[in-house]
Amino acid sequence: MDPVYYIYLATILFSIGAVGVLVRRNAIIVFMSVELMLNAANLVFVAFARMNGNLDGQTVAFFVMVVAAAEVVVGLAIIVQVFRTRQSASIDEPNLLKY
């Protein structure tokens, strides 16, 4: 199978993630959508590593996983703290800062 289809799949996944970040209101879902975007990037790297015939892309994929894990630590800490303060995980509700 032509590896270019994996690039199309990754683009679709990335778009789903991006739309999810923009339209969903629950902070956890937004966060999951960001993770989907990062994993779409991983798929791009791995597919291109196969097409280009070198291992750089596979190495990058591992680093992206590590970064995504670090992002989970920081992100969930912030989301949980906001949830405990406001009893809600909606990202529309914190709206004290505007204009």
């Binding site: 990335f14 993630g17 991006a18 970040v21 902070a27 937004v30 966060f31 960001v34 975007m37 990062l38 779409a40 990037a41 791009v44 992206v64 970064v67 992002e71 920081v74 992100g75 912030i78 989301i79 703290q81 906001v82 303060t85 990202i91 914190p94 709206n95 004290l96 800062l97």
Partner: peptide, 21 residues
Amino acid sequence: SQEASLKYFVLGAFSSAFFIF
């Protein structure tokens, strides 16, 4: 402060995903 942190994080993570893609 917490609200600023949440907004910075969500948008920052969103933009780093663009960077890596």
